[in-house]
Design a protein around this nucleic acid. Structure first.
Lengths: 138, 138
DNA sequence: CACCGCCTTGACGTTTACGTAAACGTGATA
DNA sequence: TATCACGTTTACGTAAACGTCAAGGCGGTG
């Protein structure tokens, strides 16, 4: 079997399965583990990744695309894992969620602004190009 | 005059004016200059910032919030400054704009996904807290 | 057996984005 | 005049996020 073991219900991935799928290096994946973001089972020394780890990797990379540091992502993971039960933890969790939401909403506004600027710049560009082709075809 | 010179039509800022306004250190602002992102005039050795520089700083920080590196931002600045006229440059400019747009749209999707997850997590949280208060108040 | 491909653990190197400290100039103020 | 508050340059330090060897284990194949 060369790739993911899809038998027995619980899919298993090797490190290079995930590396290929998400287009990251195995080095990066091991680094995320060193940083406490992943925790794959071992078969001897080999790492075995379940769907849970795969999801975590996906979340890590999504966080990266949004400019989050690995530290921030780990905090969220830890919170998610920890905040099962104790009221104090739940309160903290809600607070962090709200903060994260605020950041994301700021990012949405930033993105909207940049998209608008891109639109106007592109329009201006097309205008200049049109002028140019007009001038050179005359 | 202690702060920005708002006379003579063209507003002038000192480095600490901008630092205060955007909540960054003067060190950071000088660093952006070293990296070719800002280019303030000098009065002797002192830096004088115009509205243009102020706008650039704002763009730099917005880029940072979206996870852009200073290098990427500088590329955009350079392109903006360069692409005045030559058709080849305009074509390149349009291409880069399109690429940037694609990244931003991916970020929008990422943000939507995270916001949804935050919603469900927060709802679950509230449910647990409600249960808890019910159990402890009985 | 020898080689290949994939896996492992170190460990040092690199880039980015500043922080921090030293040492100094300059003008306003007590 | 001395002391701030603000500015400057130079330079070394640092955290993050890996890249890049080095050196080797393990299972299959010609």
């Amino acid at each position: 079997m060369t790739s993911a073991d899809t038998l027995s219900g619980s899919t298993i991935y090797t490190i290079s399965d995930l590396a290929r799928e998400f287009d990251v290096t195995t080095r990066a994946i091991r680094f995320y583990e060193d940083e406490g973001l992943l925790n794959p089972r071992r078969e001897g020394r080999k790492r075995l990744y379940t769907k849970r780890e795969r999801t975590r990797l996906k979340l890590i990379l999504r966080g990266k695309r949004l400019g989050m540091s690995l530290g921030e992502t780990r905090e969220l993971f830890d919170l998610f894992d920890t905040a099962r039960g104790e009221e104090r933890q739940l309160q903290l969790f809600m607070k962090i969620l709200a903060e994260r939401r605020a950041i994301l909403e700021q990012q949405q506004r930033d993105i909207e602004a940049v998209l608008l600027e891109i639109d106007t710049a592109a329009a201006e560009c097309r205008r200049l190009l049109a002028e140019h082709s007009f001038a050179s075809s005359a």
